[in-house]
Amino acid sequence: MSDSHAVATTAEAGHHEHPSYQRHHFVSMEQQNETVSFGMWLFLLTEIMFFGGLFTAYLIYRNWYYPAFVAASHTLNIVEGSLNTLVLITSSFTMAMGVWCAETKRHKGLVWSLIATLILGLGFLGIKADEYHEKYVLHHIPGTTFSAEGFVHPNEEALKAGEKPLAPDMAAKTEVYFSLYFAMTGMHALHMIIGIALLSGMLFKAWRGGYMNGHIAFVENFGLYWHFVDIVWIFLFPLLYLISRHQ
C-alpha cells in the first residue's frame, strides 16, 4: 500500500506541465517539433532517392535512344504541361499560405487555403488525365495496344512541323520513352492522390475548428510533402516536355 503510494507520488512529481499534445518523452515542444520535422525530412530524402532512380534511368535511355526520345517527346502536349506547372506552383503557394494561417491561428484563412490547394491539386490530376487520354487515342500507352507507326510514317501535319521519319527499329524505342513517361508521371500522380486524400482529412479537421491551438505539426509536415511533390514536377516538366522541344 505504501509502495503504490510512493510510485504514484513519484509519477506525479515527474509529470511537469506541458500541453496535452506534447508527447511525454520530449523535453519541450520545440524539441518535439524539431524531431517530427527531422523524421519528415528523412522520409522526403528517401523519396528524392526513389525519384532520382527514375530520372537517372530516363537520362541514360535518352542518351541511348536519342532520336526516339526526341520524336516521342514532341508528341507531348506542351500547353497542358505548362498549365499543370502553373497549377502546381500555385497550389504550393496556397499551401504555404495555409501553413502561415495555421501558425497565426487564422481559421478562415486556413480553410480557404486548403480548399484552394485541394481544387488546384484536383485540377492538376484532371489535366493529367486528359493528357493520358490523348496517349490512349494515339496508341502511345506501352503494351499490346502500343503503336510506333506514327513515328515511322509521320502524318502531313507532323512532317510540316519538321518531324523526320524514324527507322522502324528506332521508332520501336519510343515505347521505352512512354514507359518512363508513365512510370514517372504515374508515380508523381500517385503522390498527388495520396496528398489529396491527406489534404481532404486535414481540411475536414480545419473546418471543424482544428489546428487553432498551436499544435500544427500535421499542417507543417503535410506542407513539406506537398512542396516536395511540387519539386518533383519542377524536374519532370523540363525533362519530359522541354529539353527536346527545339529539335
Binding site: 504550393s92 503557394f93 499551401m95 504555404a96 506542407g223 513539406l224 512542396h227 516536395f228 511540387d230 519539386i231 519542377i234 524536374f235
Partner: peptide, 10 residues
C-alpha cells in the same frame, strides 16, 4: 526553382 522551394516554402 527547387532551391527556392526548399529554402523558403519548406
Amino acid at each position: 526553382k527547387a532551391t527556392l522551394v526548399v529554402l523558403f516554402f519548406m
